[in-house]
Nucleic acid binder design. Structure first.
Length: 593
RNA sequence: CGGGGAGUGGCGCAGUUUGGUAGCGCGCUUGCUUUGGGAGCAAGAUGCCGCAGGUUCAAAUCCUGUCUCCCCGACCA
């Protein structure tokens, strides 16, 4: 392809809409254009990148025995009502775009395809003899993200590979899950990405085991914790650790102390000389539940710990046997709107009386009380006095009505000891989630009554797994991981072109002829090569070549008369002056070893 | 949804405080010169100043409303 015919439109200035390097570079280098919030056009070179990625994904999915398919993007609401997800995915802050057709039927634009595929599987797969089956597709997904951002990183329309497997037994599911784990590692490695598999929370999609694949980059939206012995890695949402020991506390007389203006752990420690790890802090939160109820919570944590909202939400879901839509700290204004007396915020103890909630307008009038293990394990501690500006020192759980059951509700943090090996420490990095594999179990097959006949002649719901890769996100993550000051440095496997021949001065007949010859030679050798034949100054063409990030560059310049050219590797900037025939053969050896 | 910022030629921006003929850089077109790291000179073209009302002799500028985009947060398979 010739650059003069490539519709290459590069920008010198950084577009105001872009914040992170990969987003800026994709815009500047002419790979993408924004059409609306979270909606992007993939321009020709970007589409080539996407196709290179999907090609690798296809090869590895096929190798793992999966079958490619293509499912509809318009989903009848009825299907989602059967799985019980229509309400949650469309109402309020739901992420599903939905619409009505001319007959008044409700439809959703598919954000994910469990419903469609599970109901199809139920129709098509009748016998255990047909199992296992793994179906995948590569297509555009729609999610009305609350806040789209960073270009392709979190778009509202994006390309995803999603796969769903169906099994007669849990063991078979585990086999496929392992096969997908392996396939994913191969895919990311082939794409030239450093992707770390981490333990993950299954989130709203539900299910048992799940693992995310994170491309490490500072711009990543997720925090991941890895052990320095290399044996453990998890998303912070899921990560576990051994907390540091609480500071020693001598036995003292229980007493109530006046603590005016000491509503935070920090101010309390400063004024009273207490250690944060010897204080029980109690968070007052309001959980919005799936059934519409609003449940006040009292969550006790050791003062030096932070709440992990995902863990809290999971415990709450288990306890109340329904999903949690959201959770936020209760404010004074809210208690006022409920017609309640102001609660003693900043001085709440774990034993705050339910009477405080009496007469609440819409809230449930008893607290759900939860405590983190670091809190329940304390034998002596200080805590709020349930009265403004009062705390109690040297308490124990017995005096507060008994030691509550402990849950893991705290955030694991960098520097803490690992559970699998006390000698190993956690380190933190940021990551971009490019893949996620789940063992779903039978949640969807049961909800959609999707069954097969087992070897005993009995009907049984499928065991299911699902496996996603954000294709368009992966493409941008590759840029985030592979760029420098001058532009993109595409990994060779996903670059839009393998090489670019830059003719420094196209008006110099010798240069032009050698450039054309080199271009033809490479084309004939099967290299996907770009020829910069534009009537531009050399500097412009060099800048553009750096920006668009083609892995190899051959410059035909002033040594053309002697038949010499330059061969340059984009990522390392390494340059060799060679006779042209040697340059092409050397390039071919690098590309096709 | 809460907080912050911004909408002026294709891109990046100034002009708005204090109302008075819409500007700059880049890009684009033509010509000449230049030709190895985003050239120089000359001549051009391109604006519903986000949209709708209002105030005024006069609005990019003041007022009201509204839409859109970006950032932080909440939220998010």
């Amino acid at each position: 392809m010739r650059v003069s015919r490539q519709m290459l439109v590069t920008l010198r200035d950084v577009p105001a809409e872009a914040e992170i390097a990969s987003h800026q570079l994709l815009l500047r280098a002419g790979y993408i254009r924004r059409v609306g919030s979270g909606i992007y056009a993939y321009l020709p070179m970007m589409w080539k990148v996407i196709q290179r990625i999907t090609c690798i994904v296809r090869e590895e999915m096929n190798r793992a025995g999966a079958l490619e398919t293509l499912l509809p993007q318009l989903h009848p609401s009825e299907l989602w009502q059967r799985s019980g997800r229509w309400q949650g995915y469309t109402a309020g802050e739901g992420i599903m775009f939905h619409l009505e057709d001319r007959q008044g039927r409700e439809l959703g634009l598919g954000p994910t395809h469990e419903e469609v595929i599970t109901s199809l599987a139920g129709d098509l797969l009748r016998s255990y003899r047909q199992l296992p089956v793994n179906l995948y597709q590569i297509q555009t997904k729609f999610r009305d993200e609350i806040r789209p951002r960073f270009g392709l990183m979190r778009g509202r329309e994006f390309i995803m590979k999603d796969a769903y497997s169906f099994h007669a037994t849990e063991e078979s599911l585990q086999d496929s899950y392992a096969a997908m784990d392996e396939a994913y590692r191969r895919i990311f490695a082939r794409c030239g990405l450093d992707a770390v598999p981490v333990d993950a929370d299954s989130g709203a999609i539900g299910g048992a085991a799940s693992q995310e694949f994170m491309v490490t980059a500072d711009a990543g939206e997720d925090l991941i914790l890895t052990s320095d012995d290399g044996l453990y890695a998890a998303n912070q949402e899921k990560a576990i650790s051994c907390p540091d020991d609480a500071a020693p506390l001598d036995v003292g007389e229980p007493a109530t102390v006046e603590t005016p203006g000491q509503g935070s752990i920090e101010s309390l420690c400063k004024a009273q000389g207490w250690h944060p790890s010897r204080i029980i802090k109690v968070l007052l939160l309001l959980a919005r539940m799936e059934d519409g109820s609003e449940q006040p919570l009292l969550v006790s944590l050791r003062g030096d710990q932070e709440l992990n909202e995902v863990k809290l939400s999971n415990v709450l879901t288990r306890l109340l046997e329904q999903g949690v839509l959201g959770c936020h700290p209760i404010t004074v204004e809210e208690t006022g709107r409920q017609g309640l007396d102001p609660l003693p915020l900043g001085a709440i103890g774990p034993d705050l009386d339910d009477a405080w909630l009496e007469g609440a307008r819409s809230w449930t009038t008893t607290f759900v009380r939860l405590a983190d293990i670091t809190a329940t394990e304390l034998d002596r501690f200080h805590c709020g006095g349930n009265s403004p500006d009062q705390h109690r020192c040297h308490c124990n759980w017995e005096s507060l009505g008994g030691r509550p059951e402990g849950h893991d509700l705290r955030k694991a943090r960098a520097g803490e000891a690992c559970v699998h090996n006390r000698e190993a420490r956690l380190q933190e990095r940021r990551g971009i989630e490019v893949g996620h594999i789940f063992q779903l179990g039978r949640k969807y097959s049961e909800a959609l009554d999707s069954r097969f006949t087992n070897e005993n002649g009995r009907d049984e719901a499928f065991w299911m797994g699902c496996y996603g890769i954000g294709i368009s996100r992966l493409a941008q993550a590759a840029v985030e991981q592979h760029h420098d000051e001058a532009g993109i440095c595409w990994p060779i496997a996903i670059a839009p072109f393998e090489a670019i021949v830059v003719v420094a001065n196209i008006q110099d007949e010798t240069q032009r002829a050698l450039g054309e010859a080199t271009y033809s030679t490479l084309l004939q050798a099967g290299v996907d090569v770009l020829l910069d034949d534009r009537k531009e100054r050399a500097g412009v063409k060099f800048k553009d070549a750096d920006l668009i990030g083609i892995p190899w560059r051959i410059v035909i310049g002033r040594d053309a008369a002697e038949g010499n050219v330059e061969l340059i590797e984009r990522s390392s900037r390494e340059m060799r002056k060679l006779p042209h025939a040697e340059a092409t053969s050397s390039l071919l050896r690098s590309l096709r070893p």
